[in-house]
Write a protein that binds this DNA or RNA. Structure first.
Length: 862
RNA sequence: GCCUCGGUGGCGGAAUUGGUAGACGCGUUGGACUUAAAAUCCAAUUCGGGUCGAAACCCGAGUGCCGGUUCGAGUCCGGCCCGAGGUACCA
C-alpha cells in the first residue's frame, strides 16, 4: 500500500529542514523584512497543549507565506523559563530548577519540531541562560540610572506557604493563584519600577497601534487617566491642609463632608480625643483585611468620624472629616471631598450616617434615583449657577487657581510596578548594598549569576532563598573594595519576557542586548500573536521597557509590536449531560446546587434538538450541551502528541486553522481532524497512485485548459487574500474546493498542480514538500515565488442574475458577460423569465432595481 | 453594576462594501465497490408544505426577541433577552 502516510513524510522533511538549515534567517540583504513573533511559552512539565499550536501555526503560515513573497523573515522561538512551578518542584523534590527547566525545554523543543514550524532554531533564547539574563540585568541598570527603579517598604501580599510575595494579579479570592494558599498583607522592602512616569506615553501611543480595539481599551482603562482638579481644604485648628483629587470640581458647593482612607497620614493627627479609640479600632480592622476582604465586606459602607472639621474653600463652611475604607489610600491623594448629591457611593454613606446632601446639578424631570451623576445645569453654586457641568469645571478651576485653593490635575490609576520577588528561580539584581545603601554594580560585573544552593526554601522571616547562600552574599564593592552584601531579591518572571523579542535579532551579540544595525533593520515586530490573557500585564510592561530603551537609544522605535492578534482559546469537545437527582431527571438549571446531583454523560446519538434546547432522544428531558475549558480535572484535555501520532502534524495544523476564526473561542472536535486528514489524503491520491506509489499517469505537462486555470486562479485569489487577512479557515476551504474540482478532471496539467502545491504549503508544509519533490524538484519549495493571480482567468462567460419581485427571488437569468452591463437588456430578459412573469402578471411595475453584476429587483403594485 | 466580544442548520462555521442565507468541513441518510467490514467514491441533507411516490419544480417560514430605515437587512438604527471573557468602591 502506498497511502498517504504522514509520519513517514513528516519526519523526512523535518530532518531535511533541520539539516539544511532551510529556515536560517537571511542577513544583510536589500530585501524587505518581516518579523513575525509568537509569545514564547513557559516550558511547563506537562508539555505542549493544543492551544499552543494554534497561534504558532498561524504565525508559521504567515512566515512561510512572506518568505515566498520575497521577504526576509525573522521567525524565532524561545523559552520564558524562570517561574514558580520549577521552584516549587525543587522545594518538593530537591531537583534543581535548572535541571527541570532543561528537561522541559527539551520536550517542548521536540514537540514544536514535530509540528514542522519554520523557526530559525539558531536563535533560540532562554531567559534563564546567564548570557541572556546578563542583559536583563543590564536593562535594570539602565532603569536604575534613570531613576526609574527604587526601593520602598510596601505592604505586599505575603504568602507564608509559598514563602513569597505575590502581585495583586496573582492573588485570587484572597488566596495565591498558584496553590491556593492564604495570603496576608505584610510590609516588606521591595524594588519598584516607576512605570507611572510613562503613563501618559503608554496611553497616547496606543492610538497608532494595529491592535485589537478591545485590548487597547483594556490598557487605557488600566492606565486610567482622569482629568480633574486638586483642591486644598484648610482644617480647623490645624496647620496642615487636606488635599483631595476630584474629577468633579464643579460640585464643590455640594461637598458636605470629607473622607480619609484609613491609611492616610493625617488620620491620627486629626482624630480628637473622644474619637481616638473608635478611629484606632477602625484603622486596625481595616489594616488586618486584605484588599479583597475589604472590598467584599464593604458592600455596606462603614466609617467613623474623626472629630475634626475642614473648611470648604468656596463657601468657608465647616464640614466634618470622616475615615472610611471605601476611600483607597493608593489612588489620588488618599482623601476625597464627598459630594453625595452627585456620587452614588457618597450618597449611600451620607444616608447611613445622616450627613447633609446638597444637589448642585439639576436633575431631569423624570429622575427618581438618588445621586445624580449625569450632566445638567448647575445649581446651588453661586457664581456657577446656570452653567453646564463642563463650563462649570473650567470656571471653578479658574476660581481655585486665583484663590490659591487648588489647580487642574491629571490623575492615573496605574501604579508603580512591584518588581522584586522573594524567590530563587529568577534573575538576581545587579545591586549590592554598601553600608546599608543600595549601589548598582558596574556593567563589567554582569552577569550576576545565581549561586548554587541546595535548599530552595525561603527563610521563616520571609528572607529570600538567596539569603541562604552565605558565601555568595558576601562580596566587595568593585569600586571601593569595601565589604558589601548582595541583593537577595530576584526579578519577577515578567522581566525576561519584557525584551526577548530584541534578543532574537542578535542572539549572540556581546556588546549589548541587541546589535544596533540589526535592530534598525528588524524592528518593530510586524506581527505578534499570543493569548488575550496578556492583554494588559505583559504587553504593558514590555511597552514600558521598550520606551525606556528608546530613551536610552538602544532601540529605534517607540513601540515594539506593530500588529497584535490574540488567538482564541480551544475548549474541550462538546459534551451532552443529563442530570438526575434521587433517580429522577431534572432540568440542567436546577442542577446547580450540587448535592445529590448525578451527571450522566450522553453521546450525540442519545440526544436531539427540540425547540431551543436539547432533550434526551424521544423524551422531554432537557439536557445540557456545552463545551468546557480543557482541564485535567474534567478529563477533556487533548494531547497534541496523540493527534500527531494518529493523523500527522499537517492534519493537526490544518484542523486548528480550519476550526474557525483565529481570534474566536472554539470547541475541539476529533471528528473534525479526521475531516481534514481525509482532505490531505485526497490531495495525496490526486497525484499519487496508491497501488503503485508512483505519480498518476494523468499528471502530464500539456497546456491546462481555461476551466482548469480558472479553478486554480480562484484558489490563488482566495488563499492569498485570506492569508493577508489571517482568515485561515476560509483559505483552507478554498483549497478544498480546488481539490474537489480537480478530482473530477480527466487529466492533471503539472502547471496547475505546481501552483496549487505552493499555496497549500504554508498550511500543510510536509505534504506539499513531498509532492513537490515527487514532481521532480530536488530543492525545498520554501523559497519558491508565491503564485501570482491573473484576473484574466477569472472572467466569466455568463453572469447569473437572481431576479427578485418585491424583494423575493423568483427566478434567475443568465446574461453573457459582454451584455451584463446593459441595464435595459438585463431587465428585459429578467421580466421575460417564466416564473418572474407569474408575479408580474396583472401588476403594475413601480420601480426597477438593477445592480450591475449582482441582482435585479422589480417592485410591483397590484 | 460597568466594559468588551458574541448569538446563523443536528455540530464547527461561510456570506469582503446592505444584493440568491447556509460555502467548506463534521454528522446523518441512501447508493457504488467488497464474500463482509474498513477505507474510498457518488448522491442527498435549514425547517414546513404542494402533486400516489420519486426526480425536477414551486410555495411559505427562517440568521436570539420586538420594532424601524430600505426596492432589498445576518449585515444599518432603536429597545430588549441570553451566553462568554474582563473588571471591581479609581473620587
Amino acid at each position: 500500500m502506498h497511502d498517504y502516510n504522514p509520519s513517514l513524510i513528516e519526519t523526512k522533511w523535518q530532518q531535511y529542514w533541520q539539516d539544511k538549515k532551510v529556515f536560517k534567517t537571511p542577513e544583510n540583504s536589500e530585501q524587505p523584512k518581516y518579523y513575525v513573533l509568537d509569545m514564547f511559552p513557559y516550558p511547563s512539565g506537562s508539555g505542549l497543549h493544543v492551544g499552543h499550536p494554534e497561534g504558532y501555526t498561524a504565525t508559521d503560515i504567515i512566515a512561510r507565506y512572506k518568505r515566498m513573497c520575497g521577504f526576509n523573515v525573522l521567525h524565532p522561538i524561545g523559552w520564558d523559563a524562570f517561574g514558580l512551578p520549577a521552584e516549587q518542584y525543587a522545594i518538593k523534590t530537591g531537583t534543581h530548577p535548572r535541571e527541570t527547566t532543561q528537561k522541559n525545554i527539551k520536550r517542548f523543543r521536540e514537540q514544536l519540531q514535530m509540528l514542522g514550524f519554520s523557526y530559525d532554531w539558531d536563535r533560540e533564547v532562554n531567559t534563564t541562560d546567564p548570557d541572556y539574563y546578563r542583559w536583563t540585568q543590564w536593562i535594570f541598570l539602565k532603569l536604575y540610572e534613570k531613576g526609574l527603579a527604587y526601593q520602598d517598604e510596601v505592604p505586599v501580599n505575603w504568602c507564608p506557604k509559598l514563602g513569597t510575595v505575590l502581585a495583586n494579579e496573582e492573588v485570587v479570592d484572597g488566596k495565591s493563584e498558584v496553590g491556593g494558599f492564604p495570603v496576608v498583607r505584610k510590609p516588606m522592602r521591595q524594588w519598584m519600577l516607576k512605570i507611572t512616569d510613562y503613563a501618559e506615553q503608554l496611553l497616547d501611543d496606543l492610538d497608532e497601534l494595529d491592535w485589537p480595539e478591545s485590548t487597547k481599551e483594556m490598557q487605557r482603562n488600566w492606565i486610567g487617566r482622569s482629568i480633574g482638579a486638586e483642591i486644598e481644604f484648610q482644617i480647623v485648628g490645624h496647620e496642615e491642609s487636606l488635599r483631595v483629587f476630584t474629577t468633579r470640581p464643579d460640585t464643590l458647593f455640594g461637598a458636605t463632608y470629607m473622607v480619609l482612607a484609613p491609611e492616610h497620614h493625617l488620620t491620627e493627627e486629626l482624630t480628637t480625643g473622644e474619637n481616638k479609640n473608635r478611629v484606632e479600632q477602625y484603622r486596625k480592622n481595616a489594616a488586618l483585611k486584605s484588599d479583597l476582604e475589604r472590598q467584599e465586606l464593604s458592600k455596606e459602607k462603614t466609617g467613623v468620624f474623626t472629630g475634626s472639621y475642614a473648611i470648604n474653600p468656596v463657601n468657608n463652611k465647616k464640614i466634618p472629616i470622616w475615615v472610611a475604607d471605601y476611600v483607597l489610600a493608593h489612588y489620588g491623594t488618599g482623601a476625597i471631598m464627598a459630594v453625595p448629591g452627585q456620587d452614588e457611593r457618597d450618597w449611600e454613606f451620607a444616608e447611613k450616617y445622616d450627613l447633609p446632601i446638597i444637589r448642585t446639578v439639576s436633575t431631569p424631570g423624570n429622575f427618581e434615583g438618588k445621586a445624580f451623576t449625569g450632566h445638567g445645569v448647575v445649581m446651588n453654586s453661586e457664581f456657577m449657577n446656570g452653567l453646564n457641568v463642563e463650563d462649570a469645571k473650567v470656571s471653578i478651576i479658574q476660581w481655585l487657581e486665583k484663590n490659591g485653593a487648588g489647580k487642574k490635575s491629571v490623575n492615573f490609576k496605574l501604579r508603580d510596578w512591584l518588581f522584586s520577588r522573594q524567590r530563587y528561580w529568577g534573575e538576581p539584581f545587579p545591586i549590592i548594598h554598601v553600608e546599608g545603601k543600595p549601589k548598582p554594580l558596574p556593567e563589567e560585573e554582569l552577569p550576576v549569576t545565581l549561586p548554587e544552593v541546595d535548599d530552595f526554601l525561603p527563610t521563616q522571616s520571609g528572607e529570600p532563598p538567596l539569603a541562604k547562600a552565605k558565601e555568595w552574599i558576601k562580596t566587595t564593592d568593585p569600586e571601593t573594595c569595601q565589604p558589601a552584601i548582595r541583593e537577595t531579591n530576584t526579578m519577577p518572571q515578567w522581566a525576561g519576557s519584557c525584551w526577548y523579542y530584541l534578543r532574537y535579532i542578535s542572539p549572540d551579540f556581546e556588546g549589548g542586548p541587541v546589535e544596533k544595525s540589526k535592530e534598525n533593520y528588524w524592528m518593530p515586530v510586524d506581527l505578534y500573536v499570543g493569548g488575550s490573557e496578556h492583554s494588559v500585564l505583559h504587553l504593558l510592561y514590555a511597552r514600558f521597557w521598550h520606551k525606556v530603551l528608546y530613551d536610552c537609544g538602544v532601540v529605534s522605535t517607540k513601540e515594539p509590536f506593530k500588529k497584535l492578534v490574540h488567538q482564541g482559546m480551544i475548549l474541550g469537545e462538546l459534551e451532552y449531560t443529563a442530570y438526575k437527582k434521587h433517580g429522577e431527571y431534572i432540568k440542567p438549571e436546577e442542577a446547580l446546587e450540587k448535592e445529590d446531583v448525578e451527571k450522566i454523560k450522553l453521546s450525540e446519538k442519545d440526544v436531539e434538538k427540540r425547540g431551543e434546547s436539547f432533550v434526551l432522544k424521544g423524551t422531554d428531558i432537557q439536557i445540557d450541551a456545552r463545551a468546557y475549558k480543557m482541564s485535567k480535572s474534567r478529563g477533556n484535555v487533548i494531547n497534541p502528541d496523540d493527534i500527531v501520532k494518529s493523523y500527522g502534524s499537517d492534519a493537526l495544523r490544518l484542523y486548528e486553522m480550519f476550526m474557525g476564526p483565529l481570534e474566536q473561542v472554539k470547541p475541539w472536535s476529533t471528528k473534525g481532524v479526521e475531516g481534514v486528514y481525509r482532505f490531505l489524503g485526497r490531495v495525496w491520491r490526486l497525484l499519487i497512485d496508491d497501488s503503485t506509489g508512483e505519480l498518476r499517469r494523468v499528471v502530464h505537462s500539456d497546456e491546462p485548459d481555461q476551466k482548469q486555470m480558472k479553478t486554480l486562479h480562484e484558489a490563488i485569489k482566495k488563499v492569498t487574500n485570506d492569508i493577508e487577512e489571517m482568515r485561515f479557515n476560509t483559505a483552507i476551504s478554498a483549497l478544498m474546493i480546488f481539490v474537489n474540482e480537480a478530482n473530477q478532471w480527466k487529466d492533471l496539467p503539472i502547471e496547475v498542480i505546481k501552483p496549487f502545491l505552493l499555496i497549500l504549503s504554508p498550511f500543510a508544509p510536509h505534504l506539499a514538500e513531498e509532492l513537490w519533490n515527487r514532481l521532480g524538484h530536488s530543492e525545498t519549495l520554501a523559497y519558491e515565488n508565491w503564485p501570482e493571480l491573473n484576473e484574466e482567468y477569472l472572467k466569466e462567460e455568463t453572469v447569473m442574475y437572481p431576479v427578485q419581485v418585491n424583494g423575493k427571488v423568483r427566478g434567475e437569468v443568465y446574461i453573457s458577460s459582454d451584455k451584463s452591463g446593459q441595464k435595459d437588456f438585463v431587465l428585459e430578459k429578467a421580466k421575460k423569465q417564466e416564473n418572474v412573469q407569474r408575479y408580474l402578471d396583472g401588476s403594475q411595475i413601480v420601480k426597477e432595481i438593477y445592480v450591475p453584476g449582482k441582482i435585479v429587483n422589480i417592485v410591483v403594485k397590484n
